[in-house]
């Protein structure tokens, strides 16, 4: 992947010399059936594990097992097994969340509390044993599955997210969550995705092209970065829209019409 001028990094504020935002950021990736946003998740995972970031990633997997991510990230040039051994990646396999069926509400609350407890304990004992200030990134690969496990109760999911948020307050820390936009499209009123848009500082929407399928453009990304602080110290909301093409071991980002 072209590391030094990438529209996504730019939109996320990774490239800029600007200060790191003072407190933890919440990144929400919204995708749809036609256009998967998981490549953004891979990109963010790689960025958080990269050398110049020196961060620690806690990955809560609800959709895919470790071997899946290992294979993909390897192609992107990042060895997850090695990172796991170095205590920089902590992988929580939660594919069976909610499977212990019973009295839905109570069980899932207990499970989420337990999961949160594991995350908190990991941060306290393994990841940051000496209170070092390495930035923490908590990633959740498909929060809608947590809602499914909670029998559609978004309250439990929001409680869990809130507690994760309290862990990522430090400088450079972030909470990255993937959710699907279209599964809420016919619902009115408070949906999980709307609640999450309020929490999020950065919303990345992966959508299919409005004009239909194309072979050389796989979709478009809209990045809304709330409250970015630029070089002059002014705070602004930055809105970016560009197209992308997912290749075998990289993703191309370009402005509409700039690809001949």
């Amino acid at each position: 992947m072209d590391n030094h001028s990438n529209l996504l990094d730019e939109a996320l504020g990774f490239n800029s010399k600007a200060r790191v935002s003072p407190s933890g950021r919440v990144v929400l990736i919204e995708d749809s059936v036609e256009t998967s946003g998981s490549f953004v998740l891979h990109h963010l995972m790689k960025h958080a594990l990269s050398l110049n970031c020196s961060g620690i990633v806690l990955f809560v997997a609800l959709a895919q097992p470790f071997s899946h991510y290992d294979r993909i990230l390897r192609k992107l040039g990042c060895n997850l097994v090695a990172q796991r051994d170095n205590n920089r990646l902590f992988f929580f396999d939660m594919l069976k969340l909610g499977c212990l069926d019973g009295d839905g509400g109570k069980i899932i609350e207990g499970q989420l509390l337990e999961l949160y407890g594991k995350i908190q304990k990991t941060i306290e004992t393994d990841a940051l044993p000496d209170q070092s200030k390495n930035p923490i990134t908590i990633m959740i690969d498909d929060i809608s599955l947590m809602e499914v496990a909670a029998h559609g109760s978004s309250n439990h999911v929001l409680d869990f997210l809130h507690y994760c948020h309290t862990l990522t307050l430090g400088p450079g820390c972030s909470l990255v969550v993937l959710n699907h936009e279209d599964i809420y499209s016919s619902l009115t009123g408070p949906t999980l995705i709307l609640e999450m848009e309020y929490i999020a500082d950065i919303v990345i929407k992966a959508e299919p092209l409005a004009t239909g399928l194309a072979s050389d453009v796989h979709g478009q990304l809209m990045v809304v970065n709330k409250g970015i602080i630029d070089e002059n110290g002014t705070l602004r909301t930055k809105l970016r829209n560009f197209h992308f093409k997912v290749k075998e071991n990289s993703v191309e980002y370009f402005y509409p019409g700039s690809q001949s």
């Binding site: 949160y116 908190q120 304990k121 306290e124 940051l128 309290t166 862990l167």
Partner: peptide, 23 residues
């Protein structure tokens, strides 16, 4: 009411673990 609105952190405390993170 932000740091521990449901008492989760409190409930996780009991097995003798110390919270270094408590802001």
């Amino acid at each position: 009411c932000y740091s521990d609105p449901l008492g989760w952190k409190d409930r996780l405390l009991d097995p003798g673990c110390i919270t270094k993170l408590s802001p």
